Simulated scan of single mutants.
Amino acid sequence: MIDSFSTHEFVKVDITENPFFCVCGIIEVMEYLSAKTMPKAYDYLESLECENPSNVRGRQMISLSPTELNCNKETVIHFPVVVMGIITITLFVNINCPCKFRNDINVEKDFDAFIAYSEKDVDWVIHTALPKLESEDAGRACRLCLHHRDFIVGNTIADNIYNSVENNYHTILLITNDFLKSEWCMMEFRTALRKSLHDKGRHLIIVLKGNITVDNIDPDLKSCLNSQTYLKIGDVLFWDRLKYVISLRQ
C-alpha cells in the first residue's frame, strides 16, 4: 500500500503510530524498509520502533537481528506483509499447516458468519446466498455479517474487517478470481487466518466459486486449500454442508 501511494503528490502514508509487534514474522518488513528507495517524505520508515515484546520495546525495527526476533533455521515465512497506517499491524509466522485446527470453545458472538467476498460477487451473495442461509423457509436461519450491510459507518475499513472477524463464529471466504485480485479481500483472509491460528478453532470456511486460477496464488491461501476441506458451489449437497459447518461452534 505504501508503494502505491509513495509517488502520489498529495498523499502521504504515515504508519508511525502503529504498535509494531517485533517477532520473526517482521523480517519481511525489515527487508522491505532496507531495500526500498522512497521519497524523502518516507525517511521516517527507517526509524520505526517496536512496541512489543518487551525485550525489544523502543528499538528501531531495522536494527534488530534474527536472534533478537526469535527466528531459527526452521522458520519459514511465506506471506507478504501489508503495511498500512489505518490499521494496527498484526504480523504472524506461517507454520507448516496454518489451517489445521483444534477444537476450542467459543464465547457468544454477534453473528454466525462473516462473508468475505469481492464486490463483483455481491449479486450472488445478496440474491442467492442470503435467501438460502438467512430465510426461515430454508431451514435454520443463519445470522450473517456482510460488509455492505453491517460495517459500521465512520469506522475505517480495516477496523470493520477486524471487528467482523472477531464478532463471528466463522468467516466464509467466497474465493473467486476477483477475490484473489482484491487487496481488501486478501486482508479479510489474513485477518481470519490470524483468528484461526490464535483460537485454534474451526473458524475459516472456504467456498470456491467458478474456475479458480491457482497460478501465483497467495502461499498461505494455497496452503489452506491444500490442508483444509473446502466447499464448491454447484456440488449437490453444497447448501446442506455449508449450513452444517456454519452451525458448528467449536
Rank of each mutant, 00 (worst) to 15 (best):
residue 2 I to L: 00
residue 4 S to H: 15
residue 6 S to H: 03
residue 10 F to S: 10
residue 10 F to R: 14
residue 10 F to E: 15
residue 11 V to W: 08
residue 11 V to R: 02
residue 12 K to E: 11
residue 14 D to W: 01
residue 18 N to H: 10
residue 18 N to F: 10
residue 19 P to R: 14
residue 21 F to T: 08
residue 27 I to F: 01
residue 29 V to I: 00
residue 30 M to I: 10
residue 30 M to T: 09
residue 33 L to H: 04
residue 34 S to C: 13
residue 34 S to R: 13
residue 35 A to D: 14
residue 36 K to Q: 11
residue 37 T to D: 04
residue 39 P to E: 02
residue 40 K to M: 08
residue 41 A to K: 09
residue 43 D to H: 00
residue 44 Y to V: 04
residue 45 L to P: 01
residue 46 E to W: 10
residue 48 L to W: 03
residue 49 E to Y: 06
residue 51 E to H: 13
residue 52 N to G: 06
residue 54 S to F: 13
residue 55 N to Q: 05
residue 59 R to V: 09
residue 60 Q to S: 09
residue 60 Q to G: 07
residue 62 I to Q: 15
residue 67 T to E: 05
residue 68 E to N: 01
residue 73 K to H: 12
residue 74 E to Q: 06
residue 76 V to C: 08
residue 79 F to V: 14
residue 81 V to W: 06
residue 82 V to I: 09
residue 82 V to A: 14
residue 84 M to C: 11
residue 85 G to E: 01
residue 86 I to Q: 14
residue 86 I to E: 14
residue 87 I to H: 12
residue 87 I to A: 11
residue 89 I to T: 12
residue 89 I to L: 14
residue 90 T to M: 15
residue 90 T to A: 15
residue 90 T to R: 12
residue 92 F to R: 07
residue 93 V to N: 12
residue 93 V to H: 05
residue 97 C to P: 07
residue 98 P to M: 07
residue 101 F to T: 13
residue 101 F to V: 14
residue 103 N to T: 07
residue 104 D to E: 15
residue 105 I to S: 09
residue 106 N to L: 15
residue 108 E to L: 13
residue 108 E to R: 08
residue 108 E to M: 01
residue 111 F to K: 14
residue 111 F to A: 03
residue 111 F to M: 07
residue 112 D to L: 06
residue 112 D to P: 09
residue 118 S to F: 02
residue 119 E to G: 03
residue 120 K to H: 02
residue 121 D to W: 01
residue 121 D to Q: 02
residue 122 V to Q: 08
residue 125 V to C: 01
residue 126 I to V: 10
residue 126 I to N: 15
residue 128 T to K: 02
residue 129 A to Y: 04
residue 129 A to K: 08
residue 134 E to G: 00
residue 134 E to R: 03
residue 135 S to Q: 15
residue 136 E to Y: 12
residue 137 D to G: 13
residue 140 R to Q: 11
residue 142 C to T: 10
residue 142 C to V: 14
residue 143 R to E: 14
residue 145 C to R: 05
residue 150 D to T: 04
residue 154 G to I: 04
residue 154 G to A: 01
residue 156 T to D: 02
residue 158 A to C: 01
residue 162 Y to T: 04
residue 162 Y to L: 06
residue 162 Y to E: 09
residue 165 V to C: 06
residue 170 H to W: 07
residue 171 T to G: 09
residue 171 T to K: 01
residue 172 I to N: 03
residue 175 I to H: 00
residue 176 T to P: 02
residue 179 F to R: 05
residue 180 L to W: 05
residue 180 L to H: 10
residue 181 K to E: 01
residue 183 E to R: 14
residue 185 C to A: 04
residue 185 C to Y: 00
residue 186 M to L: 15
residue 187 M to L: 13
residue 190 R to C: 09
residue 193 L to Q: 03
residue 195 K to W: 06
residue 196 S to C: 08
residue 196 S to V: 00
residue 197 L to S: 10
residue 200 K to S: 13
residue 201 G to P: 07
residue 201 G to Q: 13
residue 203 H to S: 05
residue 203 H to I: 02
residue 203 H to A: 00
residue 205 I to R: 06
residue 205 I to L: 04
residue 208 L to G: 03
residue 213 T to I: 09
residue 215 D to W: 06
residue 216 N to P: 11
residue 216 N to M: 14
residue 217 I to Y: 07
residue 218 D to R: 08
residue 226 N to M: 15
residue 226 N to I: 09
residue 230 Y to K: 05
residue 232 K to L: 09
residue 237 L to M: 11
residue 238 F to A: 06
residue 240 D to Q: 07
residue 241 R to P: 02
residue 245 V to M: 12
residue 246 I to R: 06
residue 249 R to C: 05
residue 249 R to L: 11
residue 250 Q to M: 12
